[in-house]
Amino acid sequence: MRRVLPTYVGLICLLLMAPIVIVVILAFSGPGYLQFPPKTYSLHWFARFLGDPQWRASLWFSLIIGLIACVVATVAGFFAAYAFVRGSVRGKKLLLSLLLLPIIVPTVITSIAMYFLSARLHLVGNLVWVGVCHAVIALPVVLLILLSSLQGVDVNLERAALSLGAGHVRVFLRVVVPLAAPGIVSAALFAFLASFDELIISLFLTGVRTQTLPVRIWNSLHLEIEPTIAAVSAFLIGVTGLVLLIDGALRMRRRPAMKL
């Protein structure tokens, strides 16, 4: 038993990482037909990805939408998280579970409803609107991260600032925000990631000319798998890796706040 468990866990971990690692390796293979392990290695597929104006446009759309979603979700989520931690209101659990609904309700339903409304308002294909819609999906992520991060902020520091004559806004901006800063940055990063990787809402709400990266991957997987997809996927994996790396570094600096 003592050996069985680590072996089993090791095997599953291998299975968890293998697909991702293989895609990254494939992305670096030489031109021609994709095989594993690649016969030659090159940056050919990355050059194809970043050299193609359409892919570049998609990357650009994804970035813009992600930034809008990130800003909107982080600001709204931070206020709400602060209210949950410090405010006194009955039924906090119920209110929180309402705000988490966007990740519970099947995204297909949400997307169709959003599309139904957006079409009437002529907002389909509008990048800002797509970003705002993504923000709703990113909101639960921000909220959950900041709830646990704000719990690590000592309320006495706020009281001290107040008693020394600082106004509420000033306390908020000069005490709460700096103390919660690492958590806010993490939350913002994951909000960006949630939008950057979001597919179904984008599928319905982006027009033909404003396809995001996941939408283009989706279209390509449906029609004919072009090898460039491996490079685009590796790129998305790289973005995820970067976000996790920064989050890990930030987490070192706010030890007591989060537990895993």
């Binding site: 990482m17 991702i20 994951f190 990631l193 950057f196 989706w218 998305l236 994996i237 976000v243 996790l244």
Partner: peptide, 9 residues
């Protein structure tokens, strides 16, 4: 790492 990797990827 897989948790935060895009579902489509």
């Amino acid at each position: 790492v897989p948790y935060f990797t895009s579902i489509i990827v």
